[in-house]
């Protein structure tokens, strides 16, 4: 699961409000954000490995253990910013979310079809950027290291990324390994702005890339865990996979 997908799933998971530990007092000479971001690319496979990557399919399990809700999650992604994510939950049905590069949308039997606009769309499109790790300079206008903070007991560099449009995203990179350990953001949803924390772990190699296979998300006091069991790099994805669903097309045509 790459960084962008991690964020995309946060959006699906909606709101969160988790307490964030108070930042420690920081040593004067923190590394520059771009150094940390570049190191992440390096430790997870290197620029060349990412550049060989043009599409990706990941599948696994989505679970809210406290509520007893569980289901399958599959995410299709392709250059430059195509996304289709599907979660099928027992007792709820199918929840889908995606973008064809122009229209960002979400749909579920429970809430109905919805076209994302404004800040919600901006956030979805930022998350949709394929290989966003490589292209962060295009997605964010500034990146700043603001401190060191422990995540799951490990010291992490705290990097605040500010996009041209929308609210800042905070990444926490393991000081020793350079791996991304946590992403904090304010999820923009029609239900309101909600703080969301995602914790990445179980990094394993898929092809030449090191990817987290477990993401724990905390949203509005609810906890979700996504466990990835299959990753396909550069698979053949049907051309129409990223087409807008009929319900979304109908809304677009109505505009």
């Amino acid at each position: 699961m790459n960084r962008s997908l991690l964020r995309a799933n946060v959006v699906i998971g909606t709101a969160l409000l988790a307490a964030i530990a108070a930042p420690r007092l920081v040593a004067a000479d923190l590394p520059k954000a771009e150094t940390i971001l570049d190191k992440y690319i390096e430790v997870t496979g290197g620029k060349a490995a990412y550049q060989k990557l043009h599409s990706q399919v990941q599948s696994g399990i989505f679970e809210m253990a406290a509520a007893g809700i569980k289901g399958a999650v599959t995410s299709y992604r392709a250059e430059p910013d195509l996304v289709y994510t599907e979660i099928v939950l027992e007792g709820i049905g199918k929840i889908t979310d995606g973008t064809d590069g122009k229209v960002a949308w979400a749909n579920s039997a429970m809430q109905g079809p919805h076209i994302k606009e404004g800040a919600e769309r901006a956030q979805a499109m930022q998350a949709a950027r394929f290989n966003g790790e490589l292209h962060w300079r295009e997605v964010y206008k500034t990146a700043e290291t603001t401190g060191i903070e422990a995540v799951d007991g490990k010291d992490c560099y705290k990097v605040v990324l500010t996009p041209a449009e929308g609210s800042a995203v905070t990444h926490f990179y393991d000081k020793d390994s350079g791996l991304l350990a946590k992403v904090s953001l304010i999820s923009q949803t029609p239900m309101g702005e909600m703080a969301a924390d995602s914790f990445a772990s179980d990094y394993r190699k898929e092809g030449d890339i090191l990817l987290p296979h477990k993401v724990r998300q905390s949203v509005a006091g609810q906890e979700f865990v996504i466990t990835i069991d299959t990753v396909k790099l550069n698979p053949e994805i049907p051309k129409d996979r990223f087409d807008l669903p009929d319900e979304i097309k109908a809304l677009v045509n109505k505009k």
Partner: peptide, 8 residues
């Protein structure tokens, strides 16, 4: 909710 508002 505690620390969050969810609009329907």
């Amino acid at each position: 909710l505690r620390g969050a508002t969810m609009k329907f």
